[in-house]
Write a protein that binds this DNA or RNA. Structure first.
Lengths: 191, 191
DNA sequence: AAGCTAGCGGAGGGGTGCCTCCGGATGCAA
DNA sequence: TTGCATCCGGAGGCACCCCTCCGCTAGCTT
C-alpha cells in the first residue's frame, strides 16, 4: 500500500527552500548514524555537529528528540516495505524467507530507536501497519500454498524473527543458521 | 557447576562490617529496580536515594557504573544457573524446554543491562560460561536422546531464544506460542 | 538587481548527573 | 567501656547537554 505517497502528517515536514531541505536531510542522516552508534541517548548537539549544521537548525526542524526519532524511523520503514514488491514472482516460501532476511537486516540497527517509540506513538503504529501491509501478504500466500503452518499469525512471525535481530551475532553465518532454525519452526511440515 | 561458591574476583567485594554489608545489599537491590525501570542510564544518585544511602557510599562500594551493573548481573545469573539442578529428573526434551522458559523469563528484564556488558567485559564472559554450564548439558542430553536436531549448538539456541525476550509481548500467551514455534524448529523431527 | 523573508548559527542560561573529599558517626575488639 | 579503624553522608566543583533567542545570511521572486 501507498507507494511513496504520504505518511500521516504527525511529524516534521520537509521544508521547501533548497538549503533548508539540504540541512533537513543531512540531519536525518546524521541522526541515523549517531543513534546507531551511541544509542537513543546520543547528544543532539553531536547530531548537529555531524550534519555540519548549527544546533538551532536542528531544533527548528525537530522541536523534540522524538521528532528526530520518528523521521529516521519512518525513512527506514519506507525502504523496507517498498522492497516487498520485487519479491512477487518468487515461489511463496522463498519470497517470505527473502523478505524476512531483509527484515532482520533492517531491524538490527534500529534497536534503540524502536525502544523509544514503542510507547504511545502514533507514528510507530502507522509504521507497523505499513510493514504488515508489506509482509503479511507474503505470509498468507505461503500459508495458502501449504508451506507455512497456519496455526500462527504474521504477528507471531514478526516477533519471532525480530527477536533474532536484537542479539549480537559474531558472524553473519551464525545469524543465518539460527534464522534457518526459526524458519523450520514455521514450516508446515514441522511437527 | 559451582553451587554458590565464588565468582571471579573481578568485581567489588562484599564488605565486612555489618552496616556496610547492609548498605551494599540495599544498593544492589535498588540498582536492580532502577535499571529495570529507567534503563541502564538510570541516575546513580537516584539509586543511592532508593537505597536510602548517601551517594558517597554508593561510590565507595562501586567506583564505576559498570561495577554496579556487574554486581546486579552476577546475582541474576547465579539464580538462573543454579535453577538447572532440579530439572535433572525430567525427560530430556521437557527439561530443556522448562529451562528455556526460565531463561526467557530471566533475560526479559535484563535487556539494558546485557547491552552494556556485551562489550569487553570479563564478567560477562564468565557469566556466559556459568549459564552455558547450566544449559548445555540439558541440550546435549536432548540431542543424545534424538529429540533435538544435532546440526546446531547450544550457542545457537541461546541466541534464538534470547532474541525472543527482547521483543515486548502484549500477552504472555503469545510469547509462549512464539516460543513454541521456535522450539519446533529445534526438534529433530522437524524438516 | 534588489528586496523580502525563510532560514541559519551559536552564545549562553538553566538544569542534571558525575564524582571527590572530608568531618562526623558507628561497629567491633579488647 | 573505651578507642580506633572503618564507614557514612552530602556539599560542591565540574562537565555535559538541553533549548531559546536574536542578529545575520542567503534563497527566491519580480
Amino acid at each position: 500500500m501507498t507507494s511513496a505517497g504520504q505518511m500521516p502528517e504527525v511529524f516534521a515536514q520537509r521544508p521547501k527552500r533548497a538549503d533548508a531541505r539540504r540541512n533537513y536531510d543531512a540531519l536525518v542522516a546524521a541522526a541515523r548514524d549517531a543513534f546507531a552508534e551511541n544509542g537513543a541517548a546520543a547528544s543532539l548537539e553531536d547530531v548537529a555537529r555531524r550534519a555540519g549544521v548549527g544546533i538551532g537548525t536542528l531544533y527548528r526542524n525537530f522541536p523534540t528528540r522524538r521528532h528526530l526519532f520518528e523521521a529516521v524511523y519512518v525513512e527506514e520503514v519506507r525502504a523496507l516495505s517498498s522492497s516487498a514488491a520485487d519479491l512477487a514472482e518468487l515461489p511463496p516460501w522463498d519470497a517470505l524467507v527473502a523478505w524476512l532476511h531483509r527484515f532482520v537486516a533492517y531491524v538490527a540497527t534500529k534497536r534503540a530507536l524502536a525502544e523509544q517509540l514503542l510507547h504511545d506513538s502514533e507514528i510507530f503504529t502507522s509504521c507497523r501497519t505499513e510493514i504488515y501491509a508489506a509482509g503479511e501478504p507474503l505470509m498468507h500466500r505461503a500459508q495458502s500454498a501449504g508451506v507455512v503452518r497456519d496455526d500462527i499469525g504474521f504477528d507471531d512471525v514478526v516477533r519471532l524473527i525480530s527477536g533474532l535481530t536484537m542479539a549480537q551475532f559474531p558472524a553473519p553465518e551464525q545469524r543465518d543458521r539460527v534464522l534457518g532454525v526459526a524458519l523450520d519452526g514455521l514450516r508446515a511440515s514441522a511437527r
